[in-house]
Simulated scan of single mutants.
Amino acid sequence: MAVSVRDVAEAAGVSVGTVSNVLNRPDKVSAETVARVHRAIDLLGFVRNDAARQLRAGRSRSIGLVVLDMRNPFFTEVARGAEERASTDDLTVLMANSDEKQDREDRHIELFEEQRVFGMLVTPVYDSVPKLRAVRDRGTPTVLVDRESRDGSFASVAVDDLAGGTLAASHLLDVGRRRLMFVGGPVSIRQVADRLEGAQGAVAAHGGASLEFVGTRALTVEEGRVAGAQILARPVSARPDAIFAANDLLALGLLQSLVMTASVRVPEDIALIGYDDIDFAAAAVIPLTSVRQPAVLMGTTAVELLLAAAESPGGPTERVVFGPELVVRASTAT
């Protein structure tokens, strides 16, 4: 039989209310009484029923985090930052993977709302703002991560991907490349579209350069390999002299495909740049130039915004936009 709070109170010789204070507000109880109650807890093997406490409060101590792709180390770093910050307020982070699919994202959001999470951090697949607005209006604070709402109605933390795309393409142009290719997709993902638009702007402002777009079905290593094989199937004269991949996973797949045949030298024949600056970028067989996003800081900031939204429902929304940083490595350095 489970040990109850009443059992602990009897063993410690205190009231049930005192045990509750020790568990939830120990600063209101003398140190001697706290020690006595904890001795009784240890002796009886008492485990608090947190579900019951959350039921009374009407809200859990968990934050729901919905990301595009759990396999992408960028999002695990975001989660790490969120978890570090959440733990200081006695909150936990539950991570869910939409796998870049709208129906999966919708289901995760529904489940988190049913579980009465403290709040949600969401990287939307498409334009999920109407659905998320309804969730927020029903009482669940919500913050967008790695994405801004077009109308500014949500608190959000993101990186300026237009600037990031410009930074990547400008670097390739600066090292003398003129036949650029952007590999990424689907472009219905806002981050991909913004990075492509930024690159297009940089190329358009530079006479004599071109940018070809090659779409992918997902932002994965496998899709990068497929794109690499397509490039290798072309005559040498029809290949790009530089590739900007929409994220590092795609770039790593491209790198694997291009260098395995030994017919393409990186960066001599084709320079390659990725996006996110995950740990694997620096550890690649040819270290990968990348546009860095401060993933851990983004996770930390997202929880800060969520706490503020929970404290002041209906208050002003804060949008935090970090600047991207170019990290140059061997894949573009000649």
Rank of each mutant, 00 (worst) to 15 (best):
T33W: 00
A52G: 12
L68Q: 10
V66K: 04
G17Q: 07
R85I: 13
T142W: 01
Q54D: 15
K101S: 11
E100H: 07
F74M: 07
E105L: 08
Q54N: 15
N72S: 09
V129S: 08
N49W: 01
R71S: 14
D90Y: 08
V135E: 04
K131P: 02
P73H: 09
N21W: 01
A134G: 01
V67P: 04
E105Q: 15
R85C: 10
K101N: 13
D137P: 00
V22P: 01
A82H: 08
E114K: 00
R59T: 15
V5C: 03
D146P: 11
R6I: 13
A40F: 02
V67N: 06
A51L: 14
R36D: 00
N97A: 02
P141D: 06
F74N: 04
Y126T: 03
L44F: 04
Y126M: 12
T123L: 07
V19F: 00
M95F: 05
A52L: 10
V47F: 02
R56W: 13
L132N: 04
R61W: 08
V22W: 03
N97T: 02
V66R: 06
G139I: 07
A9F: 04
N21E: 03
L68C: 05
E110G: 03
D89Y: 09
E114W: 00
N72M: 12
A11M: 08
V34I: 11
L94Y: 08
A40L: 02
L43Y: 02
R133V: 02
P130I: 15
A86F: 12
V34N: 03
L91W: 05
S15Y: 03
V67M: 09
V122H: 11
R6P: 01
A86Y: 10
D27P: 00
F112Y: 13
Y126D: 15
R85P: 11
G64V: 03
R133I: 00
Q54L: 07
V78Y: 06
L94H: 05
L23Q: 03
R85F: 14
V37G: 00
D7F: 00
E10Q: 13
T92Y: 11
G58L: 12
I109T: 07
L65H: 07
A52E: 13
V67H: 06
K101A: 14
R36C: 00
A52S: 12
G81Q: 10
F75N: 09
V125M: 08
D89S: 15
D127Y: 09
G13D: 06
S30G: 10
P124S: 15
A12C: 09
D42L: 02
D99W: 03
I109V: 15
Q102Y: 11
R71Q: 11
A79N: 07
G13T: 07
P26Q: 03
T140N: 02
R80V: 13
E83W: 06
V47S: 06
S15M: 03
A82I: 08
V93E: 08
V125I: 05
A57I: 12
G81L: 09
G13Q: 10
Y126R: 13
L55R: 09
V22M: 04
E83I: 02
D146A: 12
L91Y: 04
P124H: 13
